[in-house]
């Protein structure tokens, strides 16, 4: 890991959760499989948010205990909170990571490719809210760890073997 990482606070974002940080904090979420990590960044206030989405659509569930689990509820929620902390929705830019299909040859009951649906729904919600998606690293069949650097909005993606990619 680069030396800069040590001097910055790294905040972990759990499954079906979100966190917001300010420059120079870093937000990290580990092991995204079919889940989608949505990073949101306001370059002016240098405020960043990271959301770990598990499922696309909350309307298919009767009992929603954790809105951050769903793309349709989690994205508006985190944007609203960023706004209350000083970010402007007009400046926020998004990046998407994850949405993989981890198990190949899934049986009938499991073929509903959630990874793809998580990605699609996140794009749809962001579009509806007028938030541009600057870059994406989605699909495929590998797990990914995602790190948002609030100093510049850069997202680092780590896959197995410690390969790093920055978007």
């Amino acid at each position: 890991m680069e030396p800069a990482a040590r001097s910055n606070v790294e905040i972990q974002v759990g499954i079906a959760d979100y966190k917001i940080a300010m420059d120079p904090g870093r937000l990290i979420t580990l092991g995204l499989g079919s889940c989608v990590g949505v990073s949101l960044y306001d370059p002016l206030s240098r405020l960043g948010g990271l959301l770990h989405v598990m499922l696309p659509d909350s309307t298919q569930f009767n009992n929603v205990t954790k809105p951050a689990k769903f793309a349709d509820l989690g994205i508006p929620l985190i944007i609203k909170e960023m706004q209350s902390l000083g970010a402007s929705p007009g400046r926020i830019q998004a990046k998407l990571v994850g949405g993989a299909q981890m198990f190949l040859g899934l049986d009938d009951k499991m073929t509903l490719n959630i990874g793809h649906r998580n990605t699609e729904k996140s794009r749809e919600i962001l579009k509806k809210m007028g938030i541009p998606i600057l870059d994406e690293e989605v699909g495929g069949n590998r797990g990914r760890t995602m790190i948002l650097d609030t100093r510049n909005g850069q997202v680092t993606i780590r896959t197995l073997g410690n390969k790093l990619k920055v978007i």
Binding site: G31, G33, S34
Partner: peptide
């Protein structure tokens, strides 16, 4: 049924399974 295999980061594998099997709530 037929076994399914995944090998990757533990978190990615388990959460994907959890979601695919509908065991979220």
């Amino acid at each position: 049924a037929v076994p399914l295999l995944a090998y990757d980061m533990l978190g990615a594998v388990m959460t994907s399974l959890m979601v695919a099997s509908g065991r979220v709530e």
